[in-house]
Design a binder for these strands. Structure first.
Length: 593
RNA sequence: GCCCCAGUGGAGCAGCUAGGAGUGCUCAUCUCCCUGUCAAGGAGAAGGUCGCCGGUUCAAAUCCGGUCUGGGGCGCCA
């Protein structure tokens, strides 16, 4: 070893010891007669004191030089102690210094005081990852994954790997395809999830399976979505919904206790319909109120034309009350209207509640009873602002107010500060009782919300072919602070029920066999009842780290256009490489940058 | 596919609303000074095609159109 200690580990108990350290020059403070270097390694910073008289090489040291220092740990004198550093009570008096590797001036500053353009960070990710926050995030990621593995190991789960080169699935997300050289004209797909394989493992009798596994989806990116991402995939046999919920919840509590040092409260279980009614979302952020209020009763006899026609069409009128914003200037109100329209609303009615009545463009259309009922039902008091959305499609009302709710919470300071040690900060919740189908307005048909192997709540089975909206699935999500963390279900293992579901979806037997034949075949041989769930690792780590973006917890992520500025992927390839794969590109000529 | 925000010396920003000489700030870089700093300090220097293309104008970082890139969102993600 070139070193005896890690720089950031040194403490006053090491005083008097001769040490050898390796690391990078974090900062340099040259006083002429004495030079201070903050030496950084994976464990942190330590101050090294160098005398340029005896060590002339010290004059050459610059930011990010990789160096080796030998010296003695000495106690800092009173008044020179730095309480900001873990190593702040000591320093290292250098007896020798060696430059292991020089560095060009870095393209950006590696401190935590400057936000740097993300493109530049990603282009030089190896430097960006030297920064303290990235070192901290990737360490946390390791600790969380490690705790997850320990938990499932103790619970008797086997971690079993599944193929990365597999069969394309026609439904769901777009696949990343891999051409086959050996089979001209055929393609593998990278897995969107190991869904079908883990169900096969259940048929094989591995009744508790899990895997930390990479998944791939060729869809547009978001702050919480990358084209390749990591799932904690798990599946269990001989279980009912409560069993999967129990072990998953216990896993999260265990991991949070071990890694975050926090005892989590029990996760509330919120039916999907309630989540939509109260929060306009199936992944509600429970850290603040701003709940949706129904105004259907208040305006049931209204003569205000807009509201009248919405109610006559079977639509909904709902509102959000923002405390203390009743005097919001016109410009900001207009911005709210624009936000609502961007979310799909026809318009937005704002009502300021003041000491002498309501202030709203709609006020003149309201009766006195409606004014009173509105304020009451919206839960508003003097000084508050009520935002009303009315639409003859309930789904639009939910989407608009649900979307506004999160934006308003941010804008008006209702979102609590990141406070990991506070158990109350972590608002985990189960969302349960999802409908099986969703009405597709454009195609005028019922689409499945989950994959076609999702179980059906028996009591709602009778509606399968008569009133699909009433069919409830045995599926469940975990949400945390407004993010969907996990999604899972009890699967169908009965062939008759599976056939009924395919019928309801308008999928013929031949079609089902062609697409999922291998799974349906497997189910002929004594398939056990089974179910599982798949939490997203990147999202778990991001939330745990207090980040709003999963790129901050992924070592080498891609940009919003699925580009990797570090490697330049995706790149063009040689004609010869294409030819061997029997491929010919029809794309216009690509200019590599 | 659509909407919004941003692009100005190496980094982070201001300047743009109301057009008038590449103007300013913080940091980094280089030279010099400095023995207790810790995001060290002081003096000085160097460094820019204002993302790109086009238009309006006597004159464009600034106004207009297009385009590219980065970010946020809608659609999409069974």
């Amino acid at each position: 070893m070139l070193r005896s200690h890690r720089a950031g580990d040194l403490r006053s108990e090491h005083t008097g010891e001769k040490v050898a350290l390796c690391g990078w020059v974090h900062t340099r403070r040259d006083h002429g007669g004495v030079i201070f270097i903050d030496l950084r390694d994976v464990a942190g910073l330590v101050q090294v004191v160098l005398d340029p008289q005896s060590l002339p090489l010290a004059e050459d040291l610059r930011s990010e030089y990789c160096i080796r220092v030998e010296g003695e740990v000495t106690a800092r004198k009173e008044g020179t102690i730095n309480p900001k550093l873990g190593t702040g009570e000591i320093e290292v008096a250098a007896g020798s210094v060696e430059i292991l590797s020089r560095s060009e001036t870095p393209p950006f500053q590696l401190d935590e005081y400057h936000e740097t353009d993300e493109l530049l960070r990603l282009k030089h990710r190896y430097l960006d990852l030297r920064r303290e926050s990235m070192q901290r995030n990737l360490k946390l990621r390791h600790e969380l994954i490690s705790a997850i593995r320990r938990f499932f190991d103790a619970e008797g789960f086997y971690e079993i790997e599944t193929p990365m080169l597999t069969r394309a699935t026609p439904e769901g997300a777009r696949d990343y395809l891999v051409p086959s050289r050996v089979h001209p004209g055929r393609f593998y797909a990278l897995p969107q999830s190991p869904q079908l394989f883990k169900q096969l493992l259940m048929v094989s009798g591995f009744d508790r399976y899990y895997q930390i596994v990479r998944c791939f989806r060729d869809e547009d990116l978001r702050a919480d979505r990358q084209p390749d991402f990591t799932q904690l995939d798990l599946e269990m046999s001989f279980v009912e919904q409560d069993d999967v919920l129990e072990v998953t919840e216990r896993m999260f509590k265990n991991v949070w206790k071990e890694v975050m040092g926090v005892d989590l409260a029990d996760f509330p279980r919120i039916p999907f319909s309630e989540a939509m009614e109260r929060f306009g979302s199936d992944k509600p952020d429970l850290r603040y109120g701003l709940e949706l209020r129904d105004l259907g009763d208040v305006f049931s006899d209204t003569e205000a034309r807009v509201f009248r026609s919405v109610l006559d069409d079977g639509g909904a009128i709902k509102a959000i009350t923002i405390p203390g914003q009743g005097e919001l200037p016109r410009k900001q109100l207009d911005a709210l209207v624009d936000d609502a329209k961007a979310l799909g609303a026809g318009g937005l009615v704002y009502v300021g509640v003041t000491g002498d009545g309501l202030k709203s463009p709609m006020d003149k259309f309201f009766s006195d009873a409606e004014r009173k009922g509105l304020v009451e039902s919206a839960g508003a008091s003097v000084g508050d602002l009520i935002l009303i959305v009315a639409d003859n499609r309930k789904s639009v009302v939910y989407k608009v107010l649900g979307g506004l709710r999160t934006r308003l919470a941010e804008r008006f300071g209702h979102v609590p500060e990141y406070d990991p040690a506070n158990p109350d900060y972590w608002k985990f919740a189960w969302v349960v009782d999802f409908p099986w189908f969703d009405w597709n307005e454009d195609e005028e048909r019922w689409d499945p919300i989950h994959h076609p192997f999702t179980g059906v709540v028996e009591e709602t089975l009778e509606f399968l072919e008569t009133d699909p909206a009433k069919v409830i699935s045995k599926s469940y999500d975990i949400t945390l602070n407004g993010w969907e963390l996990a999604s899972g279900s009890i699967r169908i293992h009965d062939r008759d029920m599976q056939s009924g579901v395919f019928r309801a979806l308008g999928i013929s037997e031949e079609e089902a066999n062609e697409k999922f034949g291998f799974l349906l075949d497997a189910f002929k041989y004594g398939a056990p009842p089974h179910g599982g769930i798949a939490p997203g690792i990147d999202r778990i780590v991001a939330l745990a780290a207090g980040e709003t973006n999963i790129r901050e917890v992924i070592a080498f992520p891609k940009t919003q256009t699925a580009f990797d500025p570090l490697t330049g992927a995706p790149s063009t390839v040689d004609e010869a490489q294409l030819k061997i794969l029997n491929l010919k590109s029809t794309a216009p000529a690509v200019v590599e940058d």
